[in-house]
Design a protein around this nucleic acid. Structure first.
Lengths: 142, 142
DNA sequence: ACTGATTTGAAAGTAGTTTTCATTGGAGAT
DNA sequence: ATCTCCAATGAAAACTACTTTCAAATCAGT
């Protein structure tokens, strides 16, 4: 049974002698409301609509906190800004180099081949990233 | 038939009204002499052994040049510094999160599955990165 | 409400590039 | 061989995207 993100976070906070604040609540709620990969700045913009006084640093720190308690992952597509995604939301990605659109994919056969190869060199997999760059359907017709 | 990197570079330079310099020659030679992924600083160190007056910026610019004429690729493993690798030297990577060692792999079956998936959404692949993070054989016995 | 630790936000600091600019140097014309 | 002009170089400054610091504000157990 999957727990509500806010529950998990609240337990983590209590267990670590940390405090529940209005800012954290707003940021976490906005983060889990969105359905895509978010940059810090993007989440900040969402959050500022609810409470304009919240600054970049607090959003940044809250995302680090979500990472710490396993509720979010940080990804670095190519170079530049990092994106955050909800835990459990992980697929692999095809990224359009023209418009930046991200198309998720998943294939158990690829994962299995990957495991085979790892086993051959006795490598214990913790995580992976598989990103395909190219031109999406829409951008090809332009 | 594969051409010598220096040949390709020299043609590119001439065609673009750019100049052949001692610095470029040294940097390119050192880059292609090495057999691994190099950080800018690492290549700078190699280069400084031959000609100490060469600075970071020139190495940086020469690597950008190699990228431009397709002789090298820039990769960003995780976060932090970027690594450069010779073109044609591309494999996928298993990266040890303890010691940082990089184990190359390659599997046509994975590439084919990747192509299949791309075709389904009419995505035209230009490049990809497939990185597996985990613990290498040696680090597991410690 | 009191107290003491945790959070917050602004500002400063950091890492890794990337750009600027005065000077140097390569190469075709003389 | 020298001139001349434009590209290349190196030092320093600028830039980007974080990450840390610190004084003031906030939270939560007495």
């Amino acid at each position: 049974m999957v727990q509500e993100p806010l529950e998990v976070l609240n337990r983590y906070l209590t267990e670590h002698g940390m405090k529940h604040t209005r800012q954290r609540e707003i940021i976490v709620e906005e983060f889990f409301k969105s359905n895509k990969h978010l940059q810090i700045e993007e989440l900040l913009n969402q959050v500022k609509k609810v409470e304009p006084s919240i600054g970049y640093v607090t959003v940044y720190r809250t995302l680090m906190l979500l990472k710490e308690c396993g509720l979010a992952h940080q990804r670095h597509f190519g170079e530049g800004k990092s994106l955050f995604e909800k835990a459990g939301d992980h697929h692999d990605h095809m990224i359009c180099i023209k418009c930046g659109s991200i198309h998720e994919f998943e294939d158990d056969r690829i994962e299995k081949l990957q495991d085979q190869i790892a086993k051959r060199i006795n490598f214990k997999i913790v995580s992976h990233r598989h990103e395909v760059y190219g031109c999406c359907s829409r951008c090809q017709n332009e």
